[in-house]
Design a binder for these strands. Structure first.
Lengths: 382, 382
DNA sequence: GGGTTTAACTAAACCGCTCTAGTAAAAGGG
DNA sequence: CCCTTTTACTAGAGCGGTTTAGTTAAACCC
């Protein structure tokens, strides 16, 4: 059954059409590729076919678990393939119209920001973990601005470089959404519940979260709450600001102001300084990000405002940061890693069965109470 | 010259061999692909050739800036290609033996860690920025352990999925190095100056940095310095520990102990607690990472040890974190973003011209003095 | 036992692009 | 003016898979 070592060539009824170019002197060795001067052998299904004494097609059938080969032959082919340490050539498969088995994540942010926020890294890790379970790779690209981001969407789509995209940082009237819709490529937007057109969105209920947060602070006795918000261009920032307003009205709070920033520690710090120096100093500060919360904490310390005695601090985003500082910061936590996994699952579903996928609402962030919050001094119960 | 609209088929002397399968009724339209139920047109060089009235080869020559077409024809072809919004099909090119135009970064770390450290995100951003200048994509993979990491190296190499790898977290007697050498794939190791075999390494002089750091603390009057180190499995951790020992001997310090940890905030905190509760309390603590430094700062605050009055704190790694906490932390800073760029450049060079690349020593980290360091109380000048 | 079905396998088209070999015409050379 | 060289182009092999159509030979059915 098995060919003698060294490989046999087309044993049963080989047509043996002559090789086209100068006939190679040796045809037994699997073709080699050159990497850094050293040659690396790389068997193809042709090599396997020759060794196993069957045709290319039989090998393909066997390797892909398709009918058309007998169990015995199948097993033999698989054994030979394993022996030769064969792996499919991605490009060759892709050329045949198969998937790229990769999804793209293109981020338009100043590079420094990427590293700064734990959020991004965790999301990345969760995304990866969800994708790698299905052996789908993640192509990451960091670009200057939205225009460049859109260009990458166009290029990668037409090059069939990826099977779909993950879109982050959903903005108000986001320009990327119509482009992706037009390209017709599967994509999942991190954000919602609106503003992402027909693309499926994965979102957490920021509104609900803000309402519960304000409820908690009000229950403690806080009547003057300020919100150091993120960038107003972002969808979720706007939702949070609106939710604070609504909660304040419902609870008849004395003060409830939102100050937009660019998410940077610098602007977070200066907003905090301004709020704490104002005439009607808030008794509680809500920060839209962990980085800003920590920066705000430092400002309070510098200004001699004790936390939580003189000021309660809450972060809208939980992470390592809020845990390790002193005092540790009460924060709304969501499972960012898990979120990444959900996004991955949604995107894979959208790739497999376009149209079948609808929005996914993730668990509403829950409050972890730490050292930075407490009832305000009586005097502030204006 | 130009064909009439609608496309002309093989105008000059077309052989016109009959189509093999059922002859298509319409052959004018460029082939289409289906994405999510909608069809997306995707012209191939054949479509361009037909439209421009030339052969496939001529189109290929024109698009790749190769000789073999007259300037006039070349221009015409380029115009048609632009009109049809043609883009090369990556897989098709790759199949011909071309580059994958991508490099891989495989990280074996607990997912949570990825997000925690600003270092990683910054490195990623710098890497990306260096790569995208040459339109090389980054394939990111996060795996469980080193075994899985090695498996990915093997798979991606044989699948021709990437042209090279970036290797991070160099360990003592690193198992990955011999595998990559055996695979013969271009790879750059972040770390050095030794332990990475024949692979080029990009490294910062941790030894030099530690020496200068201890010099600084000693000059302030500190004689008892403790070092909350990272994981001893890592190469750079060992180098730092050894450097501290050497510096202590040279400067005749009273105490200079290194406590290894797993880099986590928890172990950083407990190490700090242990050191501060001991009989001969150090007057200065050096932390191997920014996260541990911040955690250590919190422990000091809890224990009522004032920083910098009763304890100086230094971080071996600078980032946003060390800047935003209060007191801000004196830290050894390196340009992590730039480092990523250097790694990218080195890897691209290694891919282009294997063997030509040697190790790259980056700038030695420099100390940024902030609020967390000061001369110790006289009593400790034992 | 003749005809039909099925299983197991082979041949080769095909995906989109690159690149070598070949060809005809124009240019150059003595 | 004939021969060689160069230029501008075409044909088609080849990359490594998948997949369809075709080819046996065995199995099945009255």
């Amino acid at each position: 059954m098995l060919c003698p070592d060294g490989g046999c060539q087309d044993p049963p009824a080989g047509t043996g059409r002559p090789p086209r170019h100068p006939p190679p002197t040796v045809i037994e060795m699997p073709r080699t590729a050159v990497f850094s001067g050293r040659t690396v052998t790389r068997p193809t299904i042709d090599d396997i076919a020759r060794r196993a004494g069957v045709s290319k097609s039989a090998v393909s059938f066997a390797l892909n678990d398709r009918p058309g080969v007998s169990p015995a032959t199948r097993e033999r082919i698989l054994r030979v393939a394993a022996e030769m340490n064969w792996r499919p050539h991605k490009a060759a498969r892709a050329l045949g119209g198969a998937r790229a088995d990769a999804v793209g994540l293109v981020v338009a942010r100043p590079a420094q920001t990427i590293g700064a926020e734990p959020f991004f890294g965790l999301l990345l890790a969760g995304l990866q973990s969800g994708l790698s379970a299905r052996s789908v790779a993640l192509h990451l690209m960091i670009v200057e601005d939205t225009a460049a981001e859109i260009e990458v969407y166009r290029r990668w789509t037409s090059e069939r470089h990826v099977d779909g995209f993950v879109v982050v940082d959903l903005q108000h009237r986001d320009r990327r959404v119509p482009v992706l819709e037009e390209l017709g490529v599967p994509a999942v937007v991190l954000g919602g519940p609106s503003g992402h057109g027909t693309l499926p969105g994965v979102w957490a209920d920021d509104r609900e979260a803000m309402l519960s947060l304000v409820d908690y602070l009000a229950a403690l006795g806080h009547r003057r709450i300020a919100h150091v918000a993120g960038d107003e261009a972002f969808h979720h920032t706007r939702r949070r600001m609106r939710a604070l307003k609504d909660a304040a009205r419902r609870l008849h709070l004395a003060d409830a102001v939102s100050v937009p920033t660019d998410f940077s520690d610098a602007q977070g710090a200066s907003a905090t300084r301004a709020l704490l120096s104002g005439p009607r100093r808030p008794t509680a500060l809500v920060f839209d990000s962990d980085v800003m919360a920590v920066a705000g904490l430092a400002v309070a310390a510098e200004m001699g405002v004790a936390v939580p005695a003189g000021l309660s601090v809450v972060s809208f985003e939980d992470s390592l940061l809020t845990r390790i500082v002193h005092p540790s910061i009460t924060a709304l936590g969501r499972d960012t890693f898990g979120l990444g996994g959900q996004v991955a699952a949604t995107l894979l579903a959208a790739i497999d069965e376009p149209g079948s996928v609808r929005d996914v609402k993730t668990a509403t962030p829950r409050l972890t109470v730490r050292e930075s919050t407490r009832a305000p001094y009586p005097r502030t119960t204006a």
